[in-house]
Protein backbone atom coordinates (compact mmCIF):
# COMPACT_ATOMS: atom_id res chain seq x y z
CA UNK A 1 0.00 0.00 0.00
CA UNK A 2 2.85 2.42 0.78
CA UNK A 3 4.16 1.81 -2.73
CA UNK A 4 0.73 2.69 -4.07
CA UNK A 5 0.80 5.98 -2.14
CA UNK A 6 4.34 6.70 -3.37
CA UNK A 7 3.25 6.19 -6.98
CA UNK A 8 0.15 8.32 -6.41
CA UNK A 9 2.40 11.09 -5.04
CA UNK A 10 4.63 10.85 -8.11
CA UNK A 11 1.55 10.98 -10.34
CA UNK A 12 0.07 14.10 -8.72
CA UNK A 13 3.38 15.98 -8.61
CA UNK A 14 4.12 15.08 -12.27
CA UNK A 15 0.69 16.31 -13.30
CA UNK A 16 1.32 19.72 -11.71
CA UNK A 17 4.81 19.85 -13.20
CA UNK A 18 3.57 19.06 -16.73
CA UNK A 19 0.93 21.75 -16.39
CA UNK A 20 3.26 24.41 -15.00
CA UNK A 21 6.28 24.00 -17.31
CA UNK A 22 4.32 24.78 -20.46
CA UNK A 23 1.85 27.31 -19.08
CA UNK A 24 3.67 30.24 -20.71
CA UNK A 25 4.10 28.75 -24.19
CA UNK A 26 3.85 31.17 -27.12
CA UNK A 27 1.21 30.47 -29.77
CA UNK A 28 3.78 29.89 -32.53
CA UNK A 29 5.23 26.98 -30.57
CA UNK A 30 1.96 25.05 -30.08
CA UNK A 31 2.61 22.53 -32.85
CA UNK A 32 6.30 21.81 -32.06
CA UNK A 33 5.43 21.49 -28.37
CA UNK A 34 2.69 19.01 -29.18
CA UNK A 35 5.13 17.09 -31.35
CA UNK A 36 7.85 17.11 -28.67
CA UNK A 37 5.42 15.94 -25.98
CA UNK A 38 4.31 13.24 -28.40
CA UNK A 39 7.90 12.06 -28.73
CA UNK A 40 8.30 11.88 -24.95
CA UNK A 41 5.50 9.35 -24.48
CA UNK A 42 7.35 7.18 -26.98
CA UNK A 43 9.42 6.18 -23.95
CA UNK A 44 6.77 3.45 -23.58
CA UNK A 45 9.51 1.67 -25.57
CA UNK A 46 11.14 0.71 -22.27
CA UNK A 47 7.90 -1.01 -21.21
CA UNK A 48 7.72 -2.75 -24.57
CA UNK A 49 11.32 -4.01 -24.21
CA UNK A 50 10.43 -5.30 -20.74
CA UNK A 51 7.38 -7.34 -21.85
CA UNK A 52 8.97 -8.53 -25.11
CA UNK A 53 12.03 -9.66 -23.14
CA UNK A 54 9.84 -11.84 -20.92
CA UNK A 55 7.64 -13.32 -23.69
CA UNK A 56 7.08 -17.08 -23.51
CA UNK A 57 5.12 -18.23 -26.58
CA UNK A 58 5.73 -17.06 -30.14
CA UNK A 59 2.45 -15.08 -30.26
CA UNK A 60 3.50 -13.14 -27.18
CA UNK A 61 6.93 -12.53 -28.63
CA UNK A 62 5.55 -11.27 -31.93
CA UNK A 63 3.09 -8.95 -30.21
CA UNK A 64 5.92 -7.74 -28.00
CA UNK A 65 8.11 -7.05 -31.01
CA UNK A 66 5.27 -5.16 -32.68
CA UNK A 67 4.99 -3.05 -29.51
CA UNK A 68 8.77 -2.43 -29.58
CA UNK A 69 8.61 -1.41 -33.24
CA UNK A 70 5.62 0.93 -32.79
CA UNK A 71 7.09 2.53 -29.66
CA UNK A 72 10.44 3.13 -31.43
CA UNK A 73 8.56 4.74 -34.31
CA UNK A 74 6.81 7.06 -31.84
CA UNK A 75 10.01 7.89 -29.96
CA UNK A 76 12.53 8.34 -32.77
CA UNK A 77 10.16 9.69 -35.41
CA UNK A 78 8.72 12.08 -32.82
CA UNK A 79 12.02 13.68 -31.86
CA UNK A 80 13.26 13.88 -35.47
CA UNK A 81 10.09 15.49 -36.81
CA UNK A 82 10.07 17.98 -33.91
CA UNK A 83 13.67 18.91 -34.70
CA UNK A 84 12.72 19.51 -38.33
CA UNK A 85 9.82 21.75 -37.33
CA UNK A 86 12.12 23.80 -35.09
CA UNK A 87 14.78 23.96 -37.79
CA UNK A 88 12.29 25.87 -39.93
CA UNK A 89 11.05 27.85 -36.98
CA UNK A 90 14.36 29.25 -35.77
CA UNK A 91 15.43 31.49 -38.67
CA UNK A 92 11.95 33.00 -38.80
CA UNK A 93 11.99 33.94 -35.11
CA UNK A 94 15.58 35.19 -35.39
CA UNK A 95 14.50 37.50 -38.16
CA UNK A 96 11.63 38.81 -36.08
CA UNK A 97 13.86 39.40 -33.07
CA UNK A 98 16.77 40.89 -34.97
Amino acid sequence: MTEGIALLTVFVLSAFTGYEVISKVSTTLHTPLMSGANAIHGVILIGAIQVAGRAQGSLELWLGLVAVFLATLNLVGGFVVTDRMLEMFRPRSARRNG
Binding site: V21, I40, I46, G47
Partner: peptide, 30 residues
Protein backbone atom coordinates in the same frame (compact mmCIF):
# COMPACT_ATOMS: atom_id res chain seq x y z
CA UNK B 1 0.38 10.14 -22.31
CA UNK B 2 -2.17 9.03 -19.73
CA UNK B 3 -2.22 5.50 -21.08
CA UNK B 4 1.58 5.38 -20.86
CA UNK B 5 1.31 6.65 -17.27
CA UNK B 6 -1.13 3.86 -16.39
CA UNK B 7 1.16 1.27 -17.96
CA UNK B 8 3.94 2.69 -15.76
CA UNK B 9 1.82 1.97 -12.69
CA UNK B 10 1.12 -1.52 -14.06
CA UNK B 11 4.80 -2.32 -14.66
CA UNK B 12 5.91 -0.61 -11.45
CA UNK B 13 8.06 1.71 -13.58
CA UNK B 14 8.23 5.21 -12.10
CA UNK B 15 9.78 6.73 -15.25
CA UNK B 16 6.86 5.65 -17.44
CA UNK B 17 4.49 7.02 -14.82
CA UNK B 18 6.29 10.39 -14.73
CA UNK B 19 6.76 10.71 -18.51
CA UNK B 20 3.18 9.70 -19.27
CA UNK B 21 1.72 12.02 -16.64
CA UNK B 22 3.86 14.96 -17.80
CA UNK B 23 2.60 14.51 -21.35
CA UNK B 24 -0.96 13.92 -20.16
CA UNK B 25 -0.99 17.16 -18.16
CA UNK B 26 0.97 19.30 -20.63
CA UNK B 27 -1.07 17.87 -23.50
CA UNK B 28 -4.38 18.67 -21.80
CA UNK B 29 -3.33 22.26 -21.13
CA UNK B 30 -1.95 22.60 -24.66
Amino acid sequence: GLSVAASGYLLGNALLLVAGTLVGAAGSLL
